[in-house]
Simulated assay, not measured.
Amino acid sequence: MSNDLPPSPNQGFLADYLQFLLSTASGLASHGFHLQAAEAGLPVAEWRVLACLWDSDGNTITEIARLAQMEQSRLTKVVDRMDARGLIRRERSAEDRRLVHVWLTDTGRALADTMVARAKQHEAEFIAASLTEAEGKRLKALLTKVIKRASAETAHAVRR
C-alpha cells in the first residue's frame, strides 16, 4: 500500500479524524501550487509572506507571522532573505519602535501579482477536479466558519 494515500474509510481512527483529513486535504491541495512556486524560485515560506502582503501591504511582522502560521523568529529570517532579494522593505514604526512594518517593493508586488493569479488558477483547477462549483463554495464557507469559531476560542496562532 502506498504511503501517499490516506487510509480507506474502513481502516480505523485516522480515516475519520478531522485533523488528519484537514491536513491531508491541505497537503494534496497545496502540492501542485508549491511546485509552481518552487519553479518560480519562491520557497513556500516566502510565498506565504507575499500572499499576506498582497492582501494587506504594510502589516507588522507579528501580524504576518500569525497569518502565515510561522514562528516569529522563523519569519524574521524569511523576511531577511526577501529583503536581500529586493522583494520587500521594512520600516520601524514611528509610533512604537518595537513594531516593524513590511511592504512589498515593486519587484515583490509584480511577483505577488503573478503568483496570486497562479494560485487562484490552481485552486480553481483543484476544486473542479474534485468537487462541483457549489460544493467548492460550500467547503470554503464551512472551513471559514470553523476557522472563525476556533480562532475566537484560541488565544494563540497556529504555527508551522
Rank of each mutant, 00 (worst) to 15 (best):
Lys120Arg: 14
Gly32Thr: 05
Arg74Asn: 14
Val78Ile: 15
Ala119Leu: 07
Ser93Leu: 00
Lys145Cys: 00
Leu21Ser: 01
Tyr17Val: 07
Ala157Asp: 06
Lys148Met: 11
Ala37Cys: 04
Arg90Tyr: 06
Gly32Asp: 15
Asp80Lys: 11
Ala25Thr: 10
Glu39Val: 04
Lys77His: 10
Asp83Phe: 12
Glu46Gln: 15
Ser23Ala: 14
Gly32Lys: 02
Gln72Asn: 03
Leu111Gly: 02
Ala29Phe: 13
Gln121Tyr: 07
Leu28Gly: 13
Ile61Ser: 07
Lys137Trp: 02
Leu131Asn: 06
Gly86Trp: 07
Arg118Asp: 01
Trp103Gly: 02
Lys120Asp: 03
Ala38Leu: 04
Pro7Asp: 00
Val44Cys: 02
Leu139Ser: 07
Lys140Met: 12
Arg109Lys: 09
Thr76Ala: 10
Ala38Arg: 06
Ile147Asn: 08
Gln19Met: 13
Asp57Thr: 08
Ala155Asn: 05
Leu42Glu: 04
Gly86Ser: 06
Pro6Ala: 13
Leu50Val: 10
Asp16Ile: 12
Ala155Phe: 01
Glu125Phe: 01
Phe126Leu: 00
Asn3Thr: 15
Ala51Ile: 09
Asp80Thr: 13
Ala157Asn: 01
Ile64Ser: 05
Leu50Asp: 09
Ala150Gly: 02
Lys140Tyr: 06
Ser93Gly: 04
Leu111His: 02
Ala51Leu: 08
Leu35Phe: 00
Leu75Asn: 05
Ile64Asp: 06
Glu125Ser: 11
